[in-house]
Computed example of a mutant assay.
Amino acid sequence: MLVDAKPPVNDDVVYIHAAVEGVKAGMPFRQNHVRAYKPIDISGRTWRAISWTTAASAVSVVELVAEGSLQDSGFIKQEDITLDALFSTQAGRHFEKQGKV
């Protein structure tokens, strides 16, 4: 029913906005991470933004577990994975290269 109402498009955009607020070195602190991700070409194939961002997130975690940066059993909380660690993976590099606003 949803596909008939709103069929998939090839020019989608995924927006990410993350904000951190608190106290740092005794001073109020706020930092924002805002990005817009568009479809990209990976290995000669164009991937919609929702497809590659979803897949890259999951594959990045698999890469981190495989290299021993994350535990290989049990529950892994997303907040235990730093942005730098995500960006260090082959799949995660797409997030760093793409999405500048």
Rank of each mutant, 00 (worst) to 15 (best):
P7I: 06
F75N: 06
V34Q: 10
A91N: 05
A49T: 05
G22V: 08
D11R: 12
M27C: 02
E96T: 03
Q71W: 00
I42N: 01
H94I: 03
V14P: 04
R35Q: 10
V9D: 07
K100E: 14
V23G: 00
P39M: 04
W47G: 00
E96H: 11
D4E: 14
H94L: 07
T82R: 15
G99T: 13
G22S: 05
L70P: 08
A19I: 14
I50W: 11
V62Q: 14
E21W: 06
V3F: 04
S69K: 15
I40P: 01
E21H: 09
L83M: 14
F87D: 12
D80R: 08
A36F: 02
S57W: 11
V65R: 15
N10Y: 02
A58P: 00
W52R: 00
D80H: 09
I16S: 00
P7M: 08
G74N: 11
T54I: 04
I50S: 10
E96R: 15
H17P: 01
V59C: 05
K97E: 15
T53I: 07
E67K: 15
F29Q: 03
L70A: 04
I42E: 12
D80C: 03
G22W: 14
G22R: 15
W47H: 12
S73A: 12
H17L: 11
T46V: 11
G68D: 12
I50P: 03
S51M: 02
R45A: 06
A58V: 09
Q98H: 03
Q98F: 01
G26A: 01
P7F: 04
V61N: 08
H94G: 00
I40A: 02
T46D: 02
N10M: 07
A55V: 07
G22I: 09
E21F: 05
Q90C: 02
T89I: 06
D41F: 03
A18E: 13
A56I: 03
Q90E: 15
D41H: 02
N32G: 01
A49L: 06
V59W: 05
V65E: 13
F95N: 08
E67A: 10
R35S: 06
V59A: 12
Q31F: 09
L2H: 11
F87C: 05
A85E: 15
S43K: 10
K97Q: 14
V61Q: 10
G44F: 04
T53H: 07
G68L: 04
